[in-house]
């Protein structure tokens, strides 16, 4: 117990647990309690309804797709921001956090204004028969927007601290640039990419404010699960709303744990590579 030379274990842990318990766990227990009101039969009925399933599929499928897009472009953007110097770099760097600060409703309105059939980009896309606003691609677009900063901001510090000696060694051994990237750098980044993926995914699954403006909200096609929760609330069906919320919460928590496990494996793998 060498570590116990440091003070404040009881205080810091006790405080953190109390705070977390009051702010996060107690309310979620209330949610689960309310959800249990619909019973097993109610739960089965809820989960077997094709409309619920379609909405959950869109929310989770869309969020996974958006997180994949975010990982690809987030890596590109983080790499460019860290490795290259070009005019306007700081400005672009500052832009990355925009989705954190812009209210989600504003983001939704602005994206819809851009991609609606009469919008700046939508007008042009319409010529090619591409519809983004009021269709599932619009949902994914909004999800990409809200999740993007998570990937870049997770990657940036790691890229900055990446040891360049390994790269240079690989290159001096005759590896091409692409080989160095895919064989040496990417494996080292996998745990961080997974963290970014998990955060972007978690953020996108439950997103409501921005998606609702651009989605079109047609049942079975472009209706997201949080909207179904809102609809249940409108019917004063608190238990049903809480149940759907609990299902979403458990599913995304399970996904996060799965990703954490993957991350542990990939972390070991990356260490072995080094």
């Amino acid at each position: 117990m060498r570590r116990r030379i440091l003070p404040g274990f009881g205080l810091s842990l006790g405080y953190a647990l109390t705070y977390l318990g009051l702010i996060v766990l107690l309310p979620l227990v209330a949610l689960a309690w309310k959800a249990s009101g619909i019973g097993v039969g109610g739960m089965l009925h809820l989960l077997s309804s094709p409309r619920t399933l379609a909405a959950l599929k869109l929310s989770f499928g869309g969020a996974i797709l958006a997180a994949i897009i975010n990982v690809c472009f987030g890596l590109l953007v983080a790499w460019v921001l860290v490795r290259y110097r070009f005019p306007g770099r700081r400005l672009f760097d500052a832009l990355v956090d925009l989705p954190f600060a812009l209210p989600t409703a504003v983001a939704g309105i602005a994206l819809t204004a851009l991609y609606a059939p009469n919008g700046w980009l939508g007008h042009w896309l319409k010529h090619y028969g591409i519809q983004i606003a009021y269709a599932p691609p619009g949902v994914i677009l909004a999800m990409v927007f809200v999740g993007f900063p998570f990937v870049v901001r997770t990657l940036q510090p790691v890229l900055e601290s990446l040891d360049r000696d390994v790269e240079e060694a690989a290159e001096s051994l005759g590896a091409s640039h692409a080989q160095t990237f895919f064989r040496v750098i990417l494996p080292m980044l996998v745990p961080t990419l997974l963290t970014g993926f998990a955060l972007a995914l978690a953020r996108a699954v439950g997103e409501y404010g921005s998606v609702i403006f651009i989605a079109g909200n047609i049942p079975m096609r472009s209706e997201i699960a949080p909207l179904l929760i809102v609809e249940k609330l409108e019917e004063f069906d608190y238990a049903g709303a809480a149940a759907l919320g609990t299902v979403m919460l458990i599913a995304s928590f399970a996904l996060l744990i799965l990703i954490a496990v993957l991350q542990r494996w990939s972390g070991r793998w990356a260490e072995q590579l080094q």
Partner: peptide, 17 residues
């Protein structure tokens, strides 16, 4: 084609978009 959540939202979709 679009099912807004409120009356004002629908008007905005029709008029603005």
């Amino acid at each position: 084609p679009v099912l807004d959540t409120g009356a004002r939202g629908a008007t905005n979709t029709f008029a603005q978009r």
